[in-house]
């Protein structure tokens, strides 16, 4: 699920808090140019959809759930992921990509959203955020 991290980052920026986002593994699609506009939402593992979990694996359910999610997100005035990332960057937020994820997926900076400031290691991120409030989402 892409939104919780983005909503929290946006809220922090709106409160004047310096904000850095580190995208790793399942979060990587959000900043990968070839994938970021085609993100899908699955009800699997998400009990908040109130659907039987067995439905999640059926053909077409992911597409339907994605469609519903997009409509509901738009109804509350929240942009889709690429536009949301732009708003976060425009608000002064910093985007970082995980070195290990990039290596595993054979991606480099040219494959990533232009506003990603760099591909850095987990240790780099920990160093960068020393003393900060860290959230893992």
């Amino acid at each position: 699920m892409a939104y919780p991290g983005l909503v929290l980052a946006n809220a922090a920026l709106g409160e004047g808090v310096e904000t850095h986002l580190f995208f790793t593994f399942w979060g990587f699609d959000m900043i990968t140019k070839s994938r970021m506009t085609q993100l899908k939402f699955t009800p699997l593992g998400n009990t908040a959809t109130h659907l039987p979990q067995g439905l999640g694996g059926l053909p077409g359910v992911t597409a339907l759930a994605t469609h519903t999610m997009k409509r509901q997100i738009a109804e509350v005035g929240v942009p889709e992921v690429p536009e949301f990332l732009k708003q976060i960057v425009d608000s002064g937020g910093h985007l970082w990509a995980c070195r290990m994820s990039a290596d595993m997926m054979h991606l480099d900076e040219s494959d990533l959203y232009d506003s990603v400031e760099g591909i850095i290691s987990a240790a780099d991120f920990v160093e960068k955020t020393e003393g900060a409030q860290l959230l893992f989402i």
Binding site: G14, G16, Q87, D90, S91, G92
Partner: peptide, 14 residues
Amino acid sequence: PTKELFTLFPKKPA
């Protein structure tokens, strides 16, 4: 633009 709003009303524009 969002950036400009942060300049006009620093830190907590909304």
